[in-house]
Every structure is written in structure tokens, then in C-alpha cells.
């Protein structure tokens, strides 16, 4: 029984080192050494949140976001943001990394929970977002290719990335 509790405690540690750490690991492996990171829990201003949710017809998962500022020396080099969107019935947790001009430089699905539609995790599909910024079109099925068998998930992730891209361009000066 003692072993059970020890294992559970270890497990609990592992849990708390869960999805946030997974995102951090992604950021670290993307930039390699020579960069430092600062994580903040960013509270999205109500009017901005409300406006973007109406525009994209998709909610932010919460009123706040996990956001990482990546510095090279003292200069802000990039920003990474994590959010959730819903697939057919389960949330998809994704991370978007922006350069200092708020252009998307990398997207990664941190956690996909559905049994169908896992193609959205494929690098080839996610690479379509690279180089886009708030002035770009993210129209699903046109600028962003749809995925057969993953229409709902892929459409949802596309909206989520477009929404974060616009948010970052609005709030960049406050960061």
C-alpha cells in the first residue's frame, strides 16, 4: 500500500509537470540554447476578448492565457502563446510562436484528445501558418487547406490561430 502512495505522489508530481511544461519544452527545443524565457499568465482585457470572440465566433478557453516571452540577451525575440479550442467534442491544446513582428514562426499541437482527425498534428499542415500575421487571410479551405476527415478540428484550430495572431498584434506593445 505504501508503494501505491509513493507511486501516486510521484504521479501527482508528473501531473503538475504536465501540459505547461510540455509547451515550454516545445519552445526550448524550437529556439535551442542562447535564449531565456519568462512565462506570464496574461489576463486578456475584456473588450479585446469580447471583440475577438465575436469576430471569430469562437471563445477563448479562459480569460487568461499562458504566454512566454523569449529573450535573446535583453531583447524580446519572440512570443509563444498557448490556448485551447474545441474539436468535435474535446479540447485541442495548441501553441503558437510569433517573432518580434508578430508573424507566426511555428505552430504545434500540444495535446490532441479526439480519436478522429489527428491529422491536424501533422507538421506539413501546421507549416501553412508560418509567415502569416494579423493582416493575412486565414480562410479555412482556401488559404489554409482543409483536411478530409478532420474538418471540424482543422477549422477550429485555424480559427484559434487566427484569433491569437490578431490578439498578439493588439497587445504586443503591452508585453
Amino acid at each position: 500500500m505504501t508503494r501505491f502512495f509513493i507511486i501516486s505522489l510521484l504521479l501527482y508530481g508528473a501531473i503538475n509537470a504536465g501540459i505547461k511544461e510540455e509547451a515550454e519544452k516545445t519552445v526550448k527545443s524550437f529556439f535551442g540554447s542562447g535564449f531565456k524565457m519568462e512565462m506570464i499568465k496574461y489576463n486578456i482585457p475584456y473588450d479585446i476578448k469580447n471583440g475577438l470572440e465575436k469576430k471569430y465566433r469562437q471563445r477563448f478557453f479562459r480569460n487568461n492565457l499562458y504566454l512566454w516571452k523569449i529573450y535573446q540577451g535583453d531583447t524580446l525575440h519572440a512570443i509563444a502563446v498557448m490556448d485551447n479550442v474545441y474539436g468535435k467534442s474535446l479540447p485541442i491544446t495548441f501553441l503558437v510562436i510569433f517573432d518580434s513582428n508578430t508573424k507566426v514562426i511555428h505552430v504545434e499541437i500540444i495535446k490532441y484528445r479526439e480519436s478522429y482527425g489527428g491529422t491536424v498534428k501533422e507538421k506539413g499542415w501546421l507549416d501553412q501558418f508560418r509567415g502569416r500575421d494579423a493582416s493575412s487571410s486565414f480562410e479555412f479551405g482556401k488559404e489554409i487547406n482543409s483536411i478530409s476527415g478532420a474538418t471540424i478540428s482543422a477549422g477550429s484550430v485555424t480559427k484559434g490561430i487566427a484569433k491569437l495572431t490578431e490578439l498578439i498584434s493588439i497587445i504586443k506593445s503591452d508585453l
Binding site: M1, F4, I7, S8, Y12, G18, K88, S89, T93
Partner: peptide, 30 residues
Amino acid sequence: MRFYFSLMLFFVFGLTLIAQTDEFFESKAT
């Protein structure tokens, strides 16, 4: 024997525990 029992508890409750503590998940009907 006790070890195997602990192991079983680990899988039954431990994995459920993992599932319940992901802050990016919420129970929901769709």
C-alpha cells in the same frame, strides 16, 4: 502480491488522477 495490488491501484486510480488534473480540460457535454 502487495506489489501487484499496488500496481493495479496505480493503473486504476493513478491514470484517472492524471486525467482529472489537466487544467486545459473541463468535463462537458457537446
